[in-house]
């Protein structure tokens, strides 16, 4: 099944609500043909507002524009943008069967009956729900509803597929299975897609690129790898995955903190913080290591173990993931080192 994905350009789209709140500062970005972009952020970060503007459910503030290929669609309502959308609550029509729901968009487009039936059958097959065609919506499970919602959005062969937290309503195991399926689907269809989620694993798995949003602004755009390994702000660093932080200062080429220090090639700063991931830490002898901390708790996880270390200050513990060989006792002093390329100063 082919789809013709559009190139999408969002230009200076902001949104101020009538009560004066700025849900979205003017943001700009482009989505390539066939690319999946995941918009990630905590609730209230503006990701859903951005999606609704792209969809046409909401207009941007004056000055903003949305382009599909070379067409300015800013003033088109959603029904004339030829997109497909999967809603968080699915928004399946209870007065129609599964088949009726999936066929609805084609009916609106006056696709002849025979072709309509063929295309509905095709999409239902693709989503593995052909046997549900005559079911009423209230007879479906959550996972089945999700599939119907996706089938309905895809049946019209949209230029752009918009997914608004499509898996949030499902339980964890189902969510993971459908995540894998959606990933395969998006790759095989080559459709342009925007996927809004607050779940970072969904964003990292599904997004060719991830847009991390914070307080109505784009915090960072990049591949999953970039976002995880090269976060450009404290917010991104701490929002994605587990991140350790040691506060201190930089003087004459050395980072100094309450738990130790090391040489860095950075300009002096009265206040600086070193960031690193639990898996980048090397455990060393305390006397020769740059940082020295006390073991507070040990979680043995089988293949690995996770240590919670604490320095003199009462801040957050330092988390360290290590192999299962050595055994650590709470109260023991350990030394840690982090390779220069894994250490970020933000």
């Amino acid at each position: 099944m082919e789809t013709t994905g559009a190139r999408v350009r969002v230009e200076a789209c902001g949104k101020t609500f009538p009560d004066g709140t700025h849900a979205l500062e003017p943001i700009s970005f482009e989505i390539a043909r066939g690319e999946t972009v995941a918009m990630l952020g905590p609730s209230g970060c503006g990701k859903t507002t951005a999606l609704r503007i792209i969809a046409g459910l909401m207009g941007p503030d004056a000055g903003g524009s949305v382009w599909f290929d070379d067409e300015d669609v800013t003033s088109l309502p959603i029904e004339r943008r030829h997109v497909g959308m999967v809603f968080q609550s699915y928004a399946l029509f209870p007065n129609m069967t599964v088949e009726g729901n999936v066929a609805y968009g084609l009916k609106i487009r006056k696709v002849p009956k025979a072709e309509r039936a063929a295309r509905v059958g095709e999409v239902l097959d693709m989503m593995h729900i052909a046997e549900l065609a005559d079911r009423a919506i209230d007879q479906l499970s959550g996972g089945q509803r999700q599939r119907v919602a996706l089938a309905r959005a895809l049946a019209v062969r949209p230029r752009l597929l918009l997914l608004d937290e499509p898996l949030t309503a499902l339980d964890a195991s189902l969510r993971e299975r459908l995540r894998t399926e959606i990933d395969a689907l998006l790759r095989s269809l080559g459709i342009t897609a925007v996927y809004v989620t607050h779940d970072q694993s969904e964003a990292l798995v599904l997004g060719d690129r991830v847009i991390v949003m914070e307080k109505g602004r784009i915090a960072q755009i990049g591949t999953a790898r970039d976002i995880y390994l090269k976060p450009q702000s404290r917010f991104v660093a701490e929002f994605i995955g587990t991140m350790n932080r040691i506060e201190g200062s930089i003087r004459t080429g050395r980072f100094e903190s309450a738990v130790g220090g090391l040489a860095v090639e950075r300009a002096d700063a009265n206040s600086a913080a070193a960031f690193f991931r639990p898996e980048s830490v090397r455990l060393e002898r305390p006397e020769s290591a740059p940082f020295r901390l006390t073991v507070e708790r040990v979680h043995f996880l089988g293949a690995s173990q996770r240590l919670h270390l604490r320095g003199a200050d009462a801040g957050r513990p330092i988390i360290v993931d290590t192999d299962n060989r050595a055994s650590y006792a709470p109260g023991a002093l350990v030394g840690i080192a982090v390779a220069a390329e894994d250490l970020l100063f933000l």
Binding site: A91, F93, N95
Partner: peptide
Amino acid sequence: VTLEEGAASLGASPWQRFRDVVLPN
């Protein structure tokens, strides 16, 4: 509201949304 947005995303005009989705439900 969401049901109607669903219908709009499939191309239905305000009148079609009212007739096909709102009234029956």
